[in-house]
Structures are given as C-alpha cells and as structure tokens.
C-alpha cells in the first residue's frame, strides 16, 4: 500500500517551531497524516516528535513566547490551523489528545468522560449518558467501570486511567486523536490493551502517535515518520520503513546501532 492511496486528513507544510527563547525545535517539516490510519512518530529523545505532535492542537499556545512558522492544513476544510485568526479552542474541539502520563481530573469516572461534552455546553442528561457509555465502550473500559461510574477516577489502575483518558478524548467525536507516548508509564499488559484499542479506533478516527518504542510503532502504525534533531528524516509506509528504509540514518536507528 502506498501513502498516496488514502485521503489525507491533515498535513504539515514546511513547519518550523521556536520555543520561548528562540530554540528552533522543528525545522521545516513536511508530513501528511492519512485519514483513519495510524501515523507513528519515532526518533531519539529530544528529536522534536512531541513538540511536533503538540503543534496539532496548539498546545504550545499555553506557554508564552512560543512561535510557529509554516502551516498545518486540515482537510476537508483546507484551513491552516496555525493561523493567528484560528481559535486554538476550536482546534482542540476537533483534535483531542491522550497524554504520556494518565491525567484524569479530580472527578468521578462519569464526569471525566463527560467533561468535554460539558465544556461544549451539552446539558441533556440522556444524550450525555449515551455518549459517556459509548465512549467508555469505545475505550474498552465500560465493563470494568459500569458499576462504579460515580467513583473518583483516581481509584482506577494506571492502565484503566489511561483508557479512561482515551474515553475522555473519544467522547467528543474528534476527527484526529493525538497520542503522546501513551504507554510509556504502563506495564506490558496494559500497553498491549492500549495498542489493541488504538488499532480498533482507527476505524473511526485518524491517529497520530508519538512513541519511543519502535516495536510499538511497527505493531500498530500504518505509516511511520523518523525524526532526528528537529528534522523529518524519513516518512513512509511502516512495513517498508522497518524492512528496507531508504535512508542510512533511519536504518541505524531502527536496527539499534544508535539512539
């Protein structure tokens, strides 16, 4: 399967990023994100993969002095979501995120999932109940929590908390989901369940995932991008990338000669 065969959901065009203080963390990145596929970003620590991911929901806007250059164009509306005129809140309404460390809110399991809906002004209890259940089912955690929806979310195990965070990000029907090293704080069993979940989720949503675990990228993703020192070194079909990468640096990293 070639990268051009599926429609493109979003695409970075000559994207550079400067942290407050002028450090250039991303250097002119061009990368397509294919619709309803999983795109993995790999590379050694500090290569800018998380920085790149966080451009997609304008997370960098939370801290003063950060600066974007270039574009991230989202389809089908063909809008550059990095424009000053675009409201980051609107972007985050369409692109949700799952973090490295599970970060449930100090609320009940139900309220955690309902949060995004409430923020969007949803008040109808029946609709809310349905959407919460649907999201919890979608995140494969419904059976474990259906009898204790009103217990505080901190009582869940780490893996359950992460699936709850996925349910939270899923409840608002996002077009793209960003995963920032979603399993790095989890044990192997919880990791396997999250990976399985991601493979199911791609039927309905486009996924962009940062991982420092190459086996994970190979297992779950359709496309892989290898980044190094703020640059995109190689992008391609995951199978091709892991069997016959075209760049020497990629091969070195994948085979563990470096990184």
């Amino acid at each position: 399967m070639q990268p051009t065969e599926t429609p493109i959901k979003a695409e970075a065009r000559n994207l550079s990023f400067y942290y407050n203080g002028g450090h250039k963390a991303l250097k002119g990145i061009n990368l397509p994100v294919h619709e309803k596929k999983i795109t993995a970003l790999i590379g050694p620590s500090g290569c800018g993969k998380s920085t790149f991911l966080r451009c997609f929901n304008r997370m960098h806007d939370l801290y003063p002095g950060n600066q974007y250059e270039g574009e991230i164009v989202m389809h089908p509306d063909n809008t550059n979501i990095l424009q000053k005129a675009v409201d980051p809140i609107e972007v985050r309404m369409r692109i949700s995120m799952v973090f490295q460390k599970p970060n449930p809110f100090p609320k009940s399991i139900y309220e955690n999932v309902a949060y995004g809906l409430r923020v969007r002004g949803e008040t109808n209890k029946r609709d809310m109940d349905n959407k919460v259940e649907e999201a919890l089912r979608g995140a494969a955690i419904w059976n474990e929590v259906k009898d204790r929806l009103h217990e505080v979310a901190f009582n869940l195990s780490g893996g359950q908390q992460q699936r709850l965070c996925i349910a939270r990000a899923l409840a608002t029907d996002p077009e793209i989901m960003l995963f920032d090293e979603p399993t790095s704080a989890l044990d192997p069993i919880a990791t396997a369940s999250i990976e399985e979940l991601m493979s199911e989720l791609k039927n309905k949503v486009t996924i962009l995932v940062v991982t420092h675990n190459m086996q994970q990228a190979a297992r779950v993703s359709d496309y892989t991008a290898y980044m190094y020192l703020g640059e995109l070194i190689e992008f391609g079909n995951t199978d091709t990338m892991f069997t016959k990468p075209s760049r020497r640096e990629t091969e070195d990293y994948i085979t563990g000669k470096f990184g």
Partner: peptide
C-alpha cells in the same frame, strides 16, 4: 500539576 491543566485545555476548555 500542569499535566492536569493541559488535559483540560486539550479538551477544548477555556
């Protein structure tokens, strides 16, 4: 922790 705020902002909260 900042991660909790980020979680909220990422959901589109003001």
């Amino acid at each position: 922790p900042m991660s909790m705020r980020e979680g909220s902002y990422a959901m589109g909260a003001t």
